[in-house]
């Protein structure tokens, strides 16, 4: 059952969701650091937490309208490419990563920033200290983002199009397995997806713990 195509689909899933998570981190972490520095804002918290549950099909649909040949970004020719899925998923996981890392950053800033500043640290040094203290928490939020991205179907289906050898990822392959009536194949892919998510989560947790111990 583990054909070259399946392997290809698995690797593509990891690449697409991994890239989406990494790209999202480049704006999610600065954004949540900035939010944490600004102090508590209930409205912003509520907005971000609501967006965590954004239906993936809705996001997929909006992106489809933007990227389709009658949409504003048509000249980029991104529809039905892996890049389109990466863009969609990086947007999708942003609220999740922000809400997961924001609280941690806020309490760490409260705990350390005044102390650090009073001991003569610069703002940059304080930021580095806070980020170092929260590495494992931020890793955990990135893992959550990755799991959400690799497990979502709506965006991958609508803007990726489930094209074999090009934009087919694990979730769209599972949906196709069901549509084709190949339930065994669908279950098999589902198990792969589950094992992969668990393995990656455990591995990253272990790594970030090892890093922390080494640092301490």
């Amino acid at each position: 059952m583990l054909t070259a195509e399946t392997l290809n689909t698995v690797l593509r899933s990891i690449y697409v969701s991994g890239a989406a998570t990494l790209i999202s981190l480049t704006w999610s972490i600065p954004a949540s650091y900035y939010l944490a520095l600004r102090g508590r804002s209930r409205i912003l918290e509520t907005i971000v937490e609501t967006l965590v549950g954004m239906p993936t099909v809705l996001l997929g649909l909006l992106l489809y309208f933007i990227l389709s040949s009658s949409g504003p970004l048509a000249p980029l020719k991104l529809l039905y490419t892996p890049q389109a899925i990466i863009i969609g998923e990086s947007i999708l996981v942003t609220p999740l990563i922000i809400s997961a890392s924001y609280r941690l950053l806020r309490s760490t800033i409260r705990k350390f920033s005044e102390l650090a500043l009073s001991l003569g640290a610069s703002k940059t040094q304080t930021m580095l200290l806070v980020l170092r203290e929260t590495t494992s928490g931020i890793t955990a939020s990135a893992i959550m983002g990755f799991s959400r991205a690799i497990g979502e179907l709506g965006v991958a289906m609508m803007v990726g199009g489930n094209i074999s050898g090009h934009t087919r990822v694990l979730t769209t392959a599972i949906a196709l397995g069901v549509a084709r009536g190949e339930f065994e194949e669908a279950v098999f892919l589902g198990i792969i997806l589950l094992i992969m998510t668990i393995t990656i989560t455990v591995a990253l947790k272990y790594l970030s713990k090892a890093y922390e111990e080494w640092y301490a």
Partner: peptide, 21 residues
């Protein structure tokens, strides 16, 4: 496996929309 042959694994409506795009 031909580069021009896109296997979309989708229903007729989706396939037609993709064809149009």
């Amino acid at each position: 496996g031909a580069r021009w042959y896109l296997d979309c694994g989708c229903g007729m409506s989706e396939a037609l929309i993709m064809t149009n795009e």
